[in-house]
């Protein structure tokens, strides 16, 4: 299978500090890459460099014809504006050249009832809002989905459902998935490969190789408990 993404010697400097240094990895088409690491290790910076939002050194090579659906962790907008979920989805559909029918399908894929889309975005719960963003990312037939911490601001029973849904969407839409996550048990279950970022040298490999207690202690600086089923 060919690669959806190849990264060679990626370096990013922000305000004089080197956040990412000589990072190399690749992502096969249709696989799932989980990016883990402590806060401040540069996970979001990596995503933003990958989409071309940050200047960087090294090479980022997407497969020809790649279309990216991106779900950021933080939005630039205040939540108390009269913008409904549907306002946002319509705008996204229009800009991505997606036909109107795709909008209903995207809502269905993420289990959002059409009536929920008519709420102001400020009225969405954390989990609903992430699903709305996922629906918007699915408009325009993306080939790759970048998801920055899906469960930030989602309650615990919701977390599980959200990850299951992302996994299901990835399978049905045959997407390549890049995911930033702190949920190591989820990473273990769903990820094809794991990229760990830390102040030490980054590591990259299959979950069984990377998610060992010693490695995790090295990456996070403390022993971290997680269970895999």
């Amino acid at each position: 299978m060919e690669n959806a993404l190849e990264v060679e010697g990626l370096s990013v400097r922000l305000g004089g500090t080197e956040v990412l240094r000589e990072l190399s990895f690749s992502v096969r088409s249709g696989s799932a890459l989980a990016v883990i690491g402590p806060n401040g290790a540069g996970k979001t910076v990596l995503f933003r460099a990958l989409i071309g939002a940050l200047p960087h050194g090294g090479v980022v090579r997407w497969a020809p014809g790649t279309r990216i659906g991106y779900v950021p962790q933080k939005l630039d907008i205040e939540r108390d504006l009269p913008v409904t979920g549907r306002d946002f989805l319509r705008a996204k559909a229009h800009v991505s050249g997606a036909p109107g029918a795709d909008l209903a399908r995207a809502l269905e894929l993420v289990n959002l009832p059409p009536s929920a889309a008519d709420l102001a975005i400020g009225a969405f719960s954390g989990g609903q809002f992430q699903r709305l963003l996922l629906a918007s990312a699915l408009l325009g037939e993306p080939t790759v989905l970048l998801f920055d911490e899906p469960t930030a601001g989602v309650d615990e029973p919701g977390e599980e459902r959200l990850y299951e849904m992302i996994h299901r969407v990835q399978e049905t839409e045959r997407l390549t998935l890049l995911l930033i996550s702190h949920e190591l048990s989820v990473v273990y279950r769903y990820a094809t490969n794991v990229l760990c970022l830390s102040r030490e040298a980054p590591c990259f490999g299959a979950p069984e190789e990377i998610l060992t207690p010693e490695r995790i202690e090295q990456v996070y600086g403390t022993p971290l408990k997680y269970h895999h089923h």
Binding site: R48, P72, D87, F88, V95, S136, A137, L146
Partner: peptide, 20 residues
């Protein structure tokens, strides 16, 4: 340009990946 403006308002990064 309202649709492009709305997306950029919500997230400049989503806008970038949408080709804006």
């Amino acid at each position: 340009q309202r649709n492009r403006l709305v997306i950029t308002l919500v997230s400049a990064d989503i806008a970038r990946t949408s080709g804006i």
